[in-house]
Design a protein around this nucleic acid. Structure first.
Length: 296
DNA sequence: CAAGGCTCCTGATAGC
DNA sequence: TGCTATCAGGAGCCTT
């Protein structure tokens, strides 16, 4: 389940292996993988062919490849189970291969070592996909203009985030997952940051003090930076990075997936609660539920 | 307009 | 054994 750190690992892989290469041919093997490209798979393939791709960029969980010679970008989202793999063209197709992008490689071997490889979008659950979009003046694909900057973005506005939290009538975990407020945080790192901050997931955002909000944001940054340092998290065989390597940050998770196991701070068995058609993991002692107020 | 719920999808696993 | 139910969940879209 790729969140910001995993997507950043993929972005770096794309920068290393794909930047500067020219698209030779595109095969769309599953229509759902291009469903955000409204003109369809054939149009997507035709429009990409012959274009040179630039350095991959990322905002939150979205990443995109700017096309050097146009004002458009190939936008990608990994969804639940998406992978972008750089594979030798001779490698057998993956079971869930959805899109293949071949490049025009020089006949003579170049220094990058990328010659002879192709980019593959593999996705079991088909929540992810690729699509082509016009860029905004900021160089952002237009369809993600509503996505907030992520907490590792140096232009992320901490004060605006605190103000928004105070004004929202919602709970803290919903706010962390709201990509228009702060992007890149998913269910796993939300639970991790809330555990570190000793905050219950249903705490109303309007009751957070500025220092507590700052502390929470600091924990979000720390947990993401730690994950990035080890190459992202992997919980099953579905997620691997751009070169097919699994991450291993899951060994150091404190909350997510630890139902019944002792809290790493106080030893109390961790709990899991159904929440928004998914799960929230928390320590019932360290993360006390908010006290209901009769007249808010 | 903000907030919250629904839905898309496949495969692993549990339970009967 | 083989079927069904449940769970994993990002984010667009719809309703309230």
């Amino acid at each position: 389940m790729p969140e910001l750190p995993e997507v950043e690992v993929v972005r770096r892989g794309l920068e290393r292996w794909v930047a500067g290469r020219t698209v030779d041919d595109v095969e769309v093997l599953h229509p759902r993988a291009v469903r955000r490209h409204l003109a369809g798979g054939a149009d997507f393939a035709a429009r990409l062919k012959g274009h040179r791709v630039g350095v991959a960029r990322r905002r939150g969980k979205y990443l995109w490849l700017p096309l050097d010679d146009s004002d458009q970008s190939v936008l990608g989202h990994l969804g639940m189970s998406g992978q972008l793999l750089v594979q030798p063209a001779s490698a057998p197709d993956e079971k869930h291969l959805r899109i293949r992008i071949r490049f025009q490689d020089p006949v003579s071997a170049d220094a990058s070592g990328a010659a002879g490889t192709e980019l593959r979008f593999v996705d079991q659950r088909t929540f992810g996909g690729l699509s082509l979009h016009d860029n905004t003046p900021d160089g952002l694909p237009d369809v993600i203009a509503h996505i907030a900057r992520d907490p590792l973005d140096e232009l992320f506005d901490d004060n605006a985030f605190f103000t928004a939290l105070r004004l929202r009538r919602t709970t803290v975990k919903r706010a962390l997952l709201d990509q228009s407020l702060i992007s890149g945080v998913g269910n796993i790192y939300a639970d991790e940051a809330l555990w570190r901050a000793k905050l219950h997931y249903e705490r109303p955002t309007s009751t957070l003090t500025r220092p507590k909000s700052a502390e929470l944001l600091g924990h979000v940054r720390e947990v993401m930076s730690a994950a990035l340092a080890v190459g992202g998290t992997s919980f099953d065989s579905l997620y691997v990075n751009v070169n097919g390597e699994s991450g291993y940050f899951d060994r150091s998770l404190d909350a997510y997936g630890r139902e019944g196991e002792p809290c790493h701070r106080c030893g109390t068995p961790m709990r899991r609660r159904p929440w928004m058609n998914r799960s929230s993991y928390f320590c019932p002692r360290c993360q006390r539920p908010p006290v209901a107020r009769r007249h808010p």
